Amino acid sequence: MIGSASVATFIEPAKALLLAFEQTDNYDGIHFKWFQSRYDRFLYVDRVVVSEEHRSHGYGRMLYADLFTRAEKLGHNCIVCEVNMQPSNPGSDRFHSAQGFREVGRATIDSGAKAVRYLLWHR
């Protein structure tokens, strides 16, 4: 997965990582496909992981700041992602809202066991 991502950013040693895919990347994730069917050009944030002992140190903000810079260099003005509603993820909601993301859709999957909000950041 790391090898096929257009953006793979790490904060060493094993503190945090971010993976993002361009709309033309060979990736078959259901949420990626949702965005692909609606937007012509975007970077899709598939994964952001911050190790538990390194949370609340600003690593997520650092990863996203780097992503915004990379998006501009790659010619993207849209960055998209999804955030869980069920089970809820209020920390991610607050984080993405503070970064300027807004909701553009919702989906329920896994027979109702999971629900997500689709988010868009636009420069």
Rank of each mutant, 00 (worst) to 15 (best):
I30D: 08
V104G: 08
S88P: 08
F21P: 01
R55K: 06
Q86D: 13
G105D: 02
E22H: 12
E82W: 12
E103Q: 14
E22D: 14
A98L: 13
S37Y: 02
F95T: 06
V49L: 14
G105A: 01
H96R: 13
S51M: 02
W34G: 07
F42I: 13
N77M: 08
Q23W: 06
A107M: 10
Y64I: 01
G75H: 08
G100T: 06
L67S: 04
Q23C: 07
F35N: 03
F95V: 06
D40K: 10
S37K: 12
K33A: 12
T69R: 03
M62C: 04
T24S: 14
D40P: 06
M62W: 03
K73P: 00
N84F: 05
D93H: 15
N84T: 04
Y44F: 14
S51C: 03
K33M: 10
S56R: 11
N89P: 00
L43S: 01
S88K: 08
R38P: 05
G29W: 09
S97Y: 11
H31L: 01
S51I: 00
Y39V: 12
F95L: 09
R102V: 15
F42P: 06
P90H: 01
P87T: 10
A65D: 07
A107C: 10
A98E: 15
R102M: 15
D28K: 14
V104A: 09
S88D: 08
F21W: 03
Q23E: 14
A65E: 06
N84G: 03
G100A: 05
G29M: 10
E52F: 05
G29I: 08
S88A: 13
H76V: 00
N89M: 01
T108E: 14
Y44V: 03
R94M: 11
C81A: 10
H57S: 11
V83S: 09
T24L: 09
T108A: 14
N77D: 13
D40A: 10
G105F: 03
V83K: 07
R94Y: 11
M85L: 15
L63C: 00
M85Y: 05
Y44T: 04
D66G: 00
K33V: 08
E72M: 08
G91L: 02
R106E: 12
V50E: 02
E52R: 09
R102Q: 15
Q23M: 07
E82D: 15
S111K: 12
A107N: 09
R70D: 04
K33R: 12
F68P: 00
D93I: 15
E82I: 14
L19T: 00
N77R: 13
S51L: 02
C81I: 05
G105T: 02
K33Q: 12
